[in-house]
């Protein structure tokens, strides 16, 4: 096995999925390995492969055990004992490890996210500022400085789990979550920053809103952001915000 993946552990997630654990914690180097395996399994899908879901330090592979098993039975040499679907998929994943190109570097897309900060679009901006005893302008300056890495997408379609926000503006969640948060809202929860793609309840401190749609079901892929993207927030004026909105219609 490629030593790039000597630490990988394969564990079942029920009878129709498995998790390939690639390391511990959150780091850009582990993320690179997750991305590498994600690309491989999608480029070389085995019979019965359904889809893969990358996370911070592992990747979930969903498969159809019935198809996996039937494919084996079709090709089984008569004196061989059949393997279980999990054994078959595990060995397919292990095979993939050999094709990992360690030197490959995944060039991250840099996506600019225009944000209208404060006011009715960012009702918690002043709270975040006073929490850190700095001005609202300073919060915006720090927030627009960071280059955030999208580690994974989850929770809602197109919702990025990001790392890399400057901890100077890390702020705890609201004590009482809002019942409804407008799509496009940009928030802070602890050390994380994120963007709400759909109207959902949520406890994040909302500091602004982007006019961009994060979830675009009529396009392929259906989300603006993908795991592996780098994000830069750019402050815009109310006029620019409206221009973006008009352009969309």
């Amino acid at each position: 096995m490629n030593h790039f993946f000597t630490d990988a552990i394969i564990k079942p997630l029920g009878d129709s999925a498995l998790i390939v654990q690639i390391g511990e914690g959150i780091s850009p180097s582990i993320h690179q390995k997750v991305q590498a395996l994600s690309v491989l399994v999608n480029n070389y899908p085995f019979d019965g492969f359904v889809e893969s879901v990358p996370a911070f330090n592992n990747i979930t592979i969903h498969y159809d055990p019935v198809v996996v098993y039937q494919t084996q039975m079709k090709n089984l040499v008569s004196n061989h004992f059949p393997l279980t679907p999990f054994q078959i998929v595990s060995s397919k994943v292990n095979e993939l490890f050999q094709y990992i190109d360690e030197t490959q570097n995944f060039a991250a897309r840099l996506v600019e996210i225009p944000v209208l900060y404060g006011g009715e679009y960012g009702p918690d901006l002043d709270y975040v500022a006073s929490y850190h005893k700095i001005s609202a302008e300073e919060v915006i300056r720090i927030h627009t400085q960071c280059e955030c890495l999208v580690y994974m997408i989850g929770f809602a379609p197109g919702f990025p789990f990001m790392g890399g926000m400057n901890e100077e503006i890390a702020t705890p969640r609201r004590e009482t979550p809002r019942l409804s948060i407008t799509p496009g809202s940009v928030g802070i929860a602890g050390k994380q920053t994120g963007i709400y793609p759909l109207e959902t309840p949520g406890g994040w401190q909302i500091i602004g809103r982007t006019p961009l749609d994060l979830f675009r079901p009529d396009l392929s892929p259906p989300t603006l952001l993908q795991a592996g993207d780098k994000i830069k927030f750019v402050q815009i004026s109310p006029e620019e915000y409206n221009e973006y909105k008009e352009r969309k219609q």
Binding site: S38, V50, E51, S52, V53, P54, H62, I153, G154, F155, A156, P157, G158, F159, P197, F215, P221, P222, T223, Q226, A227
Partner: peptide, 10 residues
Amino acid sequence: RYGLQKYGVI
């Protein structure tokens, strides 16, 4: 709806 869970589509 399969194949889009990596984008958060359920």
